[in-house]
Design a protein around this nucleic acid. Structure first.
Lengths: 253, 253
DNA sequence: TAGTGGTCTAGACCACAAG
DNA sequence: TTGTGGTCTAGACCACTAC
C-alpha cells in the first residue's frame, strides 16, 4: 500500500478574502474540502504541514489548525503526530445537518411536498412533558404531516411543539419545512438528540406510505433545542425504508 | 420561562493537574460535563464567562474556549455571542462512540457474547471492492457473527476485511469485539461512515434473532478507516429493533 | 536528528445583544 | 456603554515518528 508522496495543493488559495465577513479558517477549510471532493487531493495523499501552509498563505498557525480540524471532523482527513495529515479513502457522503427533511430533499434536487393531515392543540401527556421539559397537561401543538418526494410518499411526521407555537400558519407548513417556518419566526435549532430505530408499520402508516401491510418502517424520534437550550420540538417520525436512510460519520477525537 | 441567573460553579476545579499528561482543556471539559450531568449546573443556567473562568483557574482564554467548545459539541451547552453560555435542557444520553457493539454493551453493564457462524476467505465482488478501495477479486476475510446480550440474540454481524487480516484468531473473536482484536494488532479505527436503515428480515435472520418471520430489522452498513485513512472494514449488520436503536446528537456549528 | 502534529500562552480587535 | 462570545496573531514548548 504505497502511500502517495507529499502532494502540494496548487494555488487554489488565491481568492481568500481577508476583509470580508467570512472567517479565514472557514475559507481555508472549504478550499481543502473542495480539493478533496474534486480529486485534486487524491485519497491517501499527504497534506502540506501546518506551518508551511500557514506561511504560504500568510496566516497564523492556529488559523490553519482550525481549518484543518474542521475537515478532520467531517471525516475527510486523518492526522497523526509525527507523521502528517492524509486524505481518507472512499467515496464521501455529505454529512447530515441540523435541517429538516424538507430542506434535505430540496438540496438533493428533489421536489418535496407536504400534506397536513392533522393540526390540533392537545394537553401534554407524561411522555411529551418529559421530552419538552414542560409540566404535564401543558397545551401542545400536535401536527401530523405526510412528506412526499416527487409525489411519492416518503414519511409520516408527527410533531409536538410548546404552546407559543400554536398559532403557526398551517398554509406555510405545506409550502416550507417546519424548521424554515420556525426560523422565520426567530427560532433557530441549535441542538437535536435523535434515536433511530425500526418497527412494523401501523395500518394507517402502511396506507399513507403506500407499502405492504405490516411492512417495516424506519423510525426517528427527536427532541430539538433552540439557541437558548430550550426544548422546542419533539417528533416521532417513520420513513419508507426502501426510499430513505440515515447517514452518520463518526470521528475519533 | 425565566432563565436561571448566572450560576458560579463552586471550586470543583481544585484537582487540576498542571504537570500530568492529561491536557488542561480536557480536565476542564470533563469537570464541566460532570457538573451538568450531576445537576450541579442545572438546565437553563448560565456558565461563567470565558475570561473570568480563565482567570479564576489560572488558565489562558484559548484553553478555556477549547474546553467549553468540547462540551458544546456534545450537545450539553449552547453559546450565543453577546449573551453567554447556557446548559441545554433535557436528559442527556451518552454519545455514540467509535467502538464496536461489543464494547457498547459491556460499558452499559450487559454481558455480551458472540457466536462465530462463519469465517471464510472470498474474492471481493464489485460492491466490496468499491467500499474497501481494493481491486475486484482481492481476497477478503468474511465473518458472520451472532451477537447476544445476556443470552438474548441481538444482532447478526457480517464483516469483510482486507487480506492482511485473514489470519485473525477466530477464538479471540468470540471473546472480544472485532475492534478490540484489531487494536491489539496495532490497527486503530479513526473514521467510520455509517448508513442506517430498515428492511424485512430474511428467514435465516429471523431464526437467528428469534423474531417473527418477515419481521422488521434495523440495518447498519459501515465502512471504517484506520489512522492512515485506509479502509479496513466493511460491514452489513442487522439488529433486533425491539432491543436496539441508534442515538445521534446533532450540533449546529 | 529532523519533521510532524498537540498543547498552551498573552495578548488584540471585532460583532452582537442588552441595558 | 458594557459584557459576551468569535476571530486572529506570534510566538513557545512538548510528544511522537521516522531516519
Amino acid at each position: 500500500m504505497g502511500n502517495s508522496e507529499q502532494t502540494l495543493p496548487p494555488e487554489l488559495f488565491m481568492d481568500i478574502d481577508r476583509a470580508g465577513p467570512i472567517p479565514l479558517y472557514y475559507q481555508v477549510a472549504t478550499r481543502i474540502e473542495d480539493a478533496i471532493r474534486s480529486g485534486v487531493l487524491p485519497a491517501g495523499s499527504r497534506l502540506e504541514n501546518e506551518v508551511a501552509l500557514g506561511e504560504r498563505l500568510g496566516l497564523s498557525r492556529p488559523t490553519i489548525r482550525r481549518a484543518i480540524q474542521d475537515v478532520v471532523d467531517k471525516g475527510l482527513l486523518v492526522r497523526r503526530r509525527g507523521i502528517g495529515t492524509q486524505v481518507v479513502h472512499g467515496e464521501v457522503a455529505r454529512q447530515v445537518e441540523l435541517t429538516s427533511l424538507h430542506e434535505d430533499l430540496a438540496r438533493s434536487g428533489h421536489q418535496p411536498s407536504t400534506t397536513l393531515l392533522l393540526s390540533e392543540v392537545i394537553p401534554a401527556d407524561e411522555t411529551m412533558a418529559e421530552h419538552l421539559s414542560l409540566p404535564e397537561g401543558s397545551p401542545l401543538l400536535h401536527l401530523r404531516r405526510l412528506r412526499s418526494s416527487d409525489d411519492t410518499p416518503l414519511a409520516v411526521l408527527e410533531n409536538y411543539l410548546p404552546s407559543d407555537f400554536t398559532d403557526l400558519s398551517t398554509s406555510a407548513l405545506t409550502e416550507y419545512g417546519l424548521y424554515q417556518v420556525l426560523r422565520s419566526r426567530g427560532t433557530t435549532m441549535r441542538v437535536a438528540r435523535e434515536r433511530i430505530g425500526a418497527r412494523t408499520a401501523t395500518d394507517e402508516e402502511s396506507t399513507l406510505l403506500d407499502i405492504a401491510a405490516a411492512g417495516p418502517v424506519l423510525t426517528m424520534e427527536r427532541t430539538a433545542y433552540d439557541n437558548s437550550g430550550r426544548a422546542v420540538e419533539y417528533g416521532q417520525h417513520c420513513y419508507r425504508p426502501d426510499l430513505y436512510s440515515f447517514e452518520v460519520t463518526l470521528v475519533d477525537r
